[in-house]
Computed example of a mutant assay.
Amino acid sequence: MTKRQIAYLVCTAAVVASGVGAAAPSACSRTVHRVNPGESIQKAVNTAKPGDVIFVSPGTYHESVSITVSGLTLRGASTRSTVIVPDKASADSACAKAGNGICVTGTKSKPVTDVTVRSLTLRGFKKTGLWATGTDRLRVERVTSEKNGQWGIAQERSVRGVFRHDTVEANGDAGLFLGNTVATEEGALDSKAVIIHNRLLGNRIGLTVRRLRNVVVDGNEATGNCTAMFLVGDENKPRPGALRVTDNFVHANNKFCAATARLPFLQGSGIILTGVEDSLVAGNRVEDNVGKAPMSGGIVLAKNFQGALNQRNDIRDNLVLGNGTADLASQDKGKGNTFLDNECAASRPAGMC
């Protein structure tokens, strides 16, 4: 065994139960706090220091968890075996009162950095399974978030987040939601978020990217939603855009969702761009998204309700077939949008296939 391997083992050797007091630090100040069924995840988080790991054993845990310390890892035994659900008898934390499962919370002046959440399930929360605000380099990996009232996994006012190998299913609004800010109208945030290899199943909207710049959406599967992917911009500056939406499999998003105060009814929409600029949509497989909603279709450049236009977007090299009302649709008069080398059967207006 090399000296490097021995050092790694020493760094990960200290394991303490959450019910015991503060853990003795290991040789490199990294402690693994083990939480067992019947014990409190929040108590372990409260005693942890930057760099520590909270390992949650198999079981069902009835609580909400708030993380405000940088550098923590919250890790379950596996997605199927570690499950966090609401505690209906107690909602004494701000996270729980807001109806969320896990909250990762920082501020603009003092963001929470380098937090990782992985290998667990969040289920049945009134609002959001995992909510993050004021974070930098948050990683959410192999998390299932399902049957939550609003969002499965959501983030605002945050940069350089990575969302990978997650499953978001049967959530009331978006399975994955990334935005500049929820509460106010502001220009687009330079997000640099990465959304890769996730499964977006049976939500109102599989993925919403709202008022952001520089986001990568690659290799995801979306099916059974009312709309698979909604890339939303507006007239504020900086303008939303510079998105890369590539190599996603978007099929049979034919669920019906009634109109809301913000949107008309949704059904049969694959990838929708509205008020977005300078973005690439390429190499995607978009099939069998069928409906008669105003924004139905395979890849749709839709009218923005505030009058912002899609501009200078490049739609190329996509396989777009079997979608109704059209495989490709351009509904606004934005300039510089190009459709090149897409395999499709029908477009509106005609001539884009």
Rank of each mutant, 00 (worst) to 15 (best):
L201K: 12
A188F: 06
R199F: 09
E186R: 14
G219E: 04
H165T: 13
E185Y: 03
A183H: 04
N180Y: 01
T181H: 11
H197V: 00
E185D: 13
H165L: 14
V159I: 15
E156T: 14
D190Y: 01
L200E: 01
V182G: 01
T227N: 10
G172I: 12
Q155R: 15
V232Q: 15
G172R: 09
E221I: 10
N225W: 02
R204M: 05
R199M: 11
L176A: 04
V159C: 14
T167M: 08
Q155T: 15
V162M: 10
I196P: 00
K237R: 14
F177R: 11
L176G: 06
R199K: 12
V168L: 05
R239N: 07
N214P: 03
F230G: 01
T208V: 14
I195Y: 03
I195P: 00
G175W: 01
P238A: 03
V194G: 00
N236V: 07
N203T: 08
S191R: 13
R160V: 01
V215M: 05
T227D: 09
L176R: 01
A183M: 06
V182A: 10
L207Y: 04
L200N: 00
E235Y: 12
V162P: 00
L189H: 03
S158E: 14
E185V: 11
E185N: 13
T227I: 14
D218W: 03
A170N: 14
A193K: 01
G161C: 07
A222E: 02
F177S: 03
L176K: 05
K237H: 06
G206N: 02
L212G: 08
T184Q: 14
N203H: 12
R160W: 05
R157F: 04
S191K: 07
R210C: 01
D173M: 02
A183V: 13
T181S: 11
N180C: 06
V209I: 14
G206P: 07
E186P: 03
L189A: 02
G179H: 00
R239Q: 11
Q155A: 15
L189F: 02
L212M: 15
N180L: 01
A170C: 03
V168K: 00
D190C: 02
L189I: 08
D218L: 04
G202Y: 10
A188G: 01
K192M: 08
P238R: 09
F163A: 00
I153N: 07
A154P: 12
T208S: 13
R204Y: 02
R210P: 05
V194N: 00
L212A: 06
R239W: 05
L178Q: 04
A188R: 02
T181F: 11
C226S: 15
V232F: 09
N203I: 10
G161Y: 03
S158F: 12
N214Y: 09
E186W: 05
G179C: 06
E235S: 15
V215Y: 00
R204Q: 11
T167F: 04
T227C: 09
L176C: 06
V215P: 07
D218T: 07
E235D: 15
A193Y: 04
L207S: 09
G175I: 01
R210W: 06
R211Y: 06
F230Y: 12
V159W: 09
G161L: 11
A174L: 07
D218F: 04
I205F: 07
I205L: 13
A193T: 06
C226P: 09
T167E: 08
D173I: 00
I195G: 00
H197A: 08
I196Q: 11
Q155I: 15
D166C: 15
V159Y: 13
N214C: 05
